[in-house]
């Protein structure tokens, strides 16, 4: 089964419902993680990292907007509205991705935690790779094309965080302890990132993507290549499922900050 255009997709209500749900996840995930990345601007451990991280962030924001564009094409509304004006209840990003970078805020005493950032971005980019690889075979051709395009750029992001992960795991005891503490925390919270939400069965049925369990396995295998001693507990969903519209106050804070900039200049080109 191949669906070549938005018009074709919209002819089947069940199909387009599952499709849109999947694209919202991809768009909202990239949007939130790149927002958290943008909060590090000027605060990264050194100047080269600042350049690298902001480049990754800008590129990832670009990916989010390609996914929002697909939704616009499917009749969901304009890109900017989709990114900035949707209520938290309809946001589909995994909850772990909206989590604050640490204590404080960007303007006043940002006590952000680099270990959280390394762990989060490494786990996320690994997840993004396996999810998009599965989507390159998606029945919705416009989405499969975008996935292929993103995968040409994203290996640079993953390689970057893998290097950080390796270096910190093999550096001082303190570095390793901090990474391990954040890994344990991630294990309690990452569960919903790997899920597909309300339309999981339909997504698989319509060949939009592989099944949840298979994706989870592929992700775990990839992560284990870099981190040999993973937490032994099963993955948890401490704060619920972002795929089902559950979110924390951290999302409200993120959206409020984003919309401040957005509302200050609605005509700006992002």
């Amino acid at each position: 089964m191949t669906v070549n255009s938005a018009e074709e997709a919209n002819q089947d209500v069940a199909y387009s419902k599952a499709l849109k749900e999947l694209i919202y996840q991809l768009a909202d995930d990239d949007f939130l993680i790149s927002f958290r990345g943008s909060e590090w601007l000027g605060l990264a451990p050194h100047i080269e990292e600042d350049v690298a991280f902001s480049s990754i962030t800008q590129n990832t924001m670009g990916h989010a907007f390609m996914f929002y564009q697909l939704l616009e094409d499917l009749g969901e509304g304009e890109i900017d509205l989709l990114a900035h004006e949707r209520h938290p209840d309809v946001r589909r990003n995994g909850i772990y991705l909206e989590k604050r970078n640490g204590e404080g805020n960007y303007l006043e005493e940002p006590y952000y935690d680099w270990a959280l950032t390394v762990v989060r971005h490494f786990l996320y980019e690994t997840f993004k790779k396996v999810k998009l690889e599965a989507i390159t075979k998606s029945s919705y051709k416009p989405l499969a094309n975008i996935a292929g395009k993103v995968l040409m750029e994203q290996p640079y992001h993953l390689a970057h965080w893998r290097i950080w992960m390796n270096q910190l795991l093999n550096s001082t005891e303190e570095a390793r302890d901090r990474i391990e503490a954040r890994l344990n925390e991630a294990w309690e919270e990452f569960g919903d990132v790997l899920e597909f939400g309300f339309q999981a069965t339909e997504m698989e049925h319509f060949d939009l993507i592989i099944g949840e369990e298979e994706l989870k396995e592929r992700w775990m295998d990839e992560v284990a290549k870099t981190i040999p001693n993973l937490p032994s507990e099963p993955l948890g969903k401490k704060f619920g499922s972002g795929r089902e519209g559950q979110h924390t106050e951290d999302l409200d804070q993120a959206l409020a900050t984003l919309s401040e900039v957005y509302l200050s200049d609605k005509e700006a080109i992002w």
Binding site: E48, V51, A52, S55, Q58, N59, E153, Y156, A159, H160
Partner: peptide
């Protein structure tokens, strides 16, 4: 290689 991420993407 100094920095794989330069002034532009």
């Amino acid at each position: 290689m100094e920095n794989v991420f330069g002034p532009t993407a």
